[in-house]
Amino acid sequence: MAATKPQRSHTVLAWLPVAVMATVAVGDVLTGPGLGFLPLASLGPAFAGLVGGWRRTAVFGAAALLLCVALGLYDGLFQERRGFMAMVSVIGVTGAGIAAAVMRGRREAELANVRSIAEVAQRVLLRPVPLTAGPLQAAVSYTSAVAEARIGGDLYEVVASPHGVRVIVGDVQGKGLAAVETAAVVLGAFREAAHEEPDLVRLGERLERSVARVLEGEKFVTAILAEVGADHKAVFLNYGHPPPMVVHEDGTADFPRPPAYALPLGLGGYGDGSPRPFPVGFAPGEQLLLYTDGVSEARDDRGTFYPLGERAYLLKEADAQSALDSLREDVVRHAGGPPHDDAAMLLLRYHSHAPEESAAVG
């Protein structure tokens, strides 16, 4: 397998001190002491500090010092100050490189701790969704736009409640810890209300009250709620969120939109009334994809949005998670790299246990 770009870059940096010191040695021998190559030996330990720990820097510093002494004796530079000044230069750069390597090692350890905390926070905030919930199979994909982060402002959840399978996908305005805190409030309220509220509209009203208590000013959360029962329908409440994508058995895709969008969660006080639920047919063999705008608004280098509807065929794979992973990889290819916004996707597949049950009875 061919080496990746980061691996090639690391290899180049690892061999750079050796190449520099060899160039200094050859240049000094060929040109003599007149051009003053000797102080450049300090570049060896300087470049050694770019990768590896302080021990690597110290080893290259010792090698550079030996090289400096050898070339100084060869050129007869210790009869004057030039040879000693070159040695002092190597020792100084090596000491600075060792200090920098120690500090970098501490920062890397701190970053590893932060990553570990972020992973724990993700498991608490964005728990793995159940692989099956009622008549549905579920799979999720989440990518944070924040460098080195595992969590962000997008949220999702699937709850098998006494009132049907209830789902939420949302996008908190903003990024960082404040967005994560708001996402935690929304998910906590949804997980509780999904079991207690028999009506989807009342569930949404409860979320609105919870979000309004913690958000200040004109901050908000776009979200879409869905409820799937046993009547081959999915009922939606859309709070200013991108429309869901329904993929039919023949591979065609629809984006059902509500008669009127509700204001995002947190802005309900500026509107006039509750959102209206709207039903959409959702039968066995069909798929439902809920997503955030980090997917639908991903752009290529020409500014073209990701054509989600044209990529519905990627969801044909038998395994739901593999199908969703293929779609995520296609989004990354379209954008030419990591997303500039958090991107969450939740895939639901409607399946039926009727054939298995019939076989069991027979």
Score class of each variant (00 low, 15 high):
294 G>N: 01
109 A>P: 00
214 V>S: 05
80 E>W: 12
27 G>P: 04
149 A>M: 08
105 G>N: 01
51 V>Y: 02
10 H>S: 11
337 G>H: 06
146 V>A: 14
154 D>I: 09
257 R>G: 07
273 G>L: 11
112 A>G: 13
246 V>E: 04
117 I>K: 00
175 K>I: 11
54 W>D: 10
76 G>H: 09
63 A>E: 04
204 G>P: 02
28 D>S: 14
218 E>V: 12
174 G>A: 13
149 A>I: 03
87 M>H: 02
225 L>M: 04
269 G>R: 09
274 S>L: 12
344 A>E: 03
112 A>S: 15
296 S>G: 06
333 R>Q: 15
197 E>K: 09
340 H>D: 14
270 Y>M: 13
65 L>C: 09
204 G>V: 09
18 V>K: 00
98 I>F: 09
308 L>S: 06
95 G>C: 11
8 R>A: 03
341 D>E: 11
88 V>G: 07
264 P>T: 07
127 R>G: 03
313 Y>C: 07
341 D>V: 14
134 G>Y: 07
284 P>A: 15
341 D>G: 09
10 H>R: 13
209 R>N: 07
134 G>V: 05
34 G>M: 09
212 A>H: 04
27 G>R: 00
217 G>F: 13
207 L>P: 04
59 V>H: 01
165 V>L: 10
355 P>G: 05
305 F>D: 08
180 V>I: 14
149 A>T: 01
98 I>E: 04
49 G>I: 04
260 A>W: 04
268 G>K: 02
24 V>S: 05
287 Q>V: 05
176 G>D: 12
170 G>I: 10
94 T>H: 06
